[in-house]
């Protein structure tokens, strides 16, 4: 086969190993505050989950690339970063075998079957998370609460869905949700830590501001409508923003390079739709939180959103 001298293709370009590696290091640094908060609140269990997830993701990547006869690419750290984000989306009591199944799915079904990094149409972390949600409902809801502080083992959104708005102040204040003194997946509880990490990512230009901001606008927009229509039963936009996985999904999951759009208008639409679907699921759906489901659903629209192109200059 003749190799063309100049390949012209649309973004995202797969960068040289060094650059991907740098991005991934920044990405993992950005997750450290959230990981630290979870260890502070949930104890050593959280560290174990994070460690198993990262180590097993790298191990699976090594094994699968060997078996498939591909060049080893663990040094670009994408496997480790996926493992870290995945751990953020697990409950603090996740059993080791479930984490290993999950990381196996991230690497095999999320990435390598499509031909490796950059070719995956979906976010592998989300695929694995959905598979685990469908298979092991009980293990995926193994919440821990800080002993002596909380009287509940449900997450704020579960309380909203199953007990009603008036029960929430009995267990959580808005400040609790902001700092992270609540129940939920390891990485989603502390909004402030995620915010610090997200701003760091934007400043280091790992991600752009479009998706996270429009995601939150979508959530605030629809929850605001619900709240104005029926303030007795619907929680206010601030609660919806802070509870559940909105911050984690907006900064760290929805911004996954291969599965999100690349043009500014595409990114804004994508984020806004994610926010809307999140609220639709929370309001009418069977699940209590829709942040991760919505990102998965909307990422199917990415090829379409990428068609919205800016007008060429001068035409």
């Amino acid at each position: 086969m003749k190799t063309p001298e100049l390949v012209v293709s649309t973004i995202p370009h797969v960068h040289g190993g060094n650059s991907v590696q740098k991005m991934m290091i920044n990405f993992m640094i950005a997750l450290l505050p959230a990981a630290g908060m979870s260890v502070y609140f949930f104890g050593p269990g959280a560290i174990v989950v994070i460690a198993i997830s990262v180590v097993s993701a790298v191990a699976w990547e090594f094994i699968i690339q060997k078996v498939m006869g591909r060049p080893l690419a663990i040094s670009n750290l994408t496997g480790a970063a996926s493992g870290l984000v995945f751990a953020m989306m697990l409950p603090p009591t996740a059993p080791w075998w479930m984490i290993c199944i999950g990381t196996f799915i991230i690497i095999l079904l999320g990435k390598e079957v499509y031909g490796g990094l950059g070719n995956n149409p979906f976010n592998g972390v989300l695929i694995a998370w959905l598979v685990l949600q469908m298979s092991f409902r009980g293990e995926m809801a193994g919440w821990i609460y800080v002993a002596g502080e909380f009287l509940t083992e449900s997450t704020p959104l579960e309380i909203l869905k199953f007990e009603g708005l008036e029960s929430i102040p009995e267990y959580f204040t808005i400040a609790d949700l902001f700092i992270g003194r609540t129940t939920g997946f390891i990485g989603e509880v502390s909004a402030i830590a995620l915010l610090i990490g997200g701003v760091f990512l934007i400043v280091r230009r790992v991600i752009s501001w479009h998706i996270p901001v429009s995601f939150m606008i979508g959530v605030v927009f629809l929850s605001g409508i619900f709240w104005l229509m029926n303030p007795e039963e619907c929680a206010d936009p601030i609660f919806h923003l802070l509870a559940g996985g909105v911050f984690l999904a907006a900064f760290f999951v929805a911004t996954d390079m291969p599965s999100s759009p690349t043009t500014p208008i595409g990114m804004l639409t994508y984020g806004f739709l994610c926010g809307l679907v999140t609220m639709v699921i929370r309001q009418w759906g069977a699940w209590d939180d829709g942040a991760f489901y919505s990102v998965f659903l909307i990422s199917m629209l990415t090829p379409l959103l990428d068609k919205i192109k800016p007008k060429a200059y001068g035409r």
Partner: peptide, 19 residues
């Protein structure tokens, strides 16, 4: 053995067939 229920559901069928 807890059972990997995912495979019994429609998406599991597609994944299985693809593999």
């Amino acid at each position: 053995y807890p059972g990997f229920t995912y495979l019994l559901k429609p998406p599991g069928a597609f994944v299985c067939l693809g593999i």
